[in-house]
Write a protein that binds this DNA or RNA. Sequence first.
DNA 1: TAGAGCTACTGCGATAACGTAGTAGCCAAT
DNA 2: ATTGGCTACTACGTTATCGCAGTAGCTCTA
Lengths: 163, 163
Amino acid sequence: MSRPQHPDSAGSTDPHAGLGNVLFDIWLVSRAATAQIDAAVQPSGLDADEFAIYSVLAGADGMTPTELANWMAAPPTTVSSYVKRFERRGHVRRVANPDDGRSYLLELTASGRAAHRTAGELFAPVLGRVTSALGPAAADTHRLLQDLHAAVGSSEDAVGDRS
Amino acid sequence: MSRPQHPDSAGSTDPHAGLGNVLFDIWLVSRAATAQIDAAVQPSGLDADEFAIYSVLAGADGMTPTELANWMAAPPTTVSSYVKRFERRGHVRRVANPDDGRSYLLELTASGRAAHRTAGELFAPVLGRVTSALGPAAADTHRLLQDLHAAVGSSEDAVGDRS
DNA sequence: TAGAGCTACTGCGATAACGTAGTAGCCAAT
DNA sequence: ATTGGCTACTACGTTATCGCAGTAGCTCTA
């Protein structure tokens, strides 16, 4: 059980068939979830990734690009391009970082928060559906995912090593 | 608890702090895992997504682009471009689909299987690390992720609705 | 307090993702 | 057999991702 195996029943092409390991499960679930969320929040003008990012920014105001990059395991250049895009939309503002002149802090503008709120309303029913489909297991699932995140993230800073 | 909340401790920028809901957990874990796998399998010439796709193809030979698209929740044009790339590498071959003249079946060539094997060997230690970090919870986690996938996927075909 | 070595960010260029708008083959219903 | 409506795939063009290489500001050492 140390490397990927074929789906449960040979020849099956059922989209819900896994590959027998946790990492693939995540990949599959994440793709499905992202597609779902993309479709749901689309009228807000954000996509799933952007909604996620706006959400962190909404919760932790004054975050540096590097912090954001670490948080979402993305390379700095990707974050850079996100920032530029968000700024162009008038959703995000750069504020000087008092602790470091090379850097700056990101914060949502009022209109950024509004967009986030709109997206949040579109997102809610999706989350609701999933949560109720999970039933009482929802809480466990949340906890297990946190553990999983810790397990995966334990060997940090893999980002950028894809040189 | 019907919409995203801020991280556990206000102002925290810890990359492991979640946003308090299952869907974000997945997003975060998946990003971390993908970065990890990207870095690990990189010498094989594949990235994490490609490795995943090669894995399905290895397990279910004779899959149509549409089946693949459903399986990975990707739009058809994305799959199309994957196929073209894989074919250019000599890793995938199209065979006529006896059941449908508009379509074709995908299968890995010998060299595609070789690339997949190489990537698999690079991937194994990553999976091993995660699995052992999870300890006995690994099996539960796997099962919970399957449930989660079912819960998310229950409202199918969101892909393509992002028009 | 100089300056070597780091770290934070970004311009640019290459490649990838994927929406739009087709074409070709399928499957009724006539 | 014909045709109207579907579905499978794809060329093309736009936008996004992200590696490389460069600049500015930080920090430590002497």
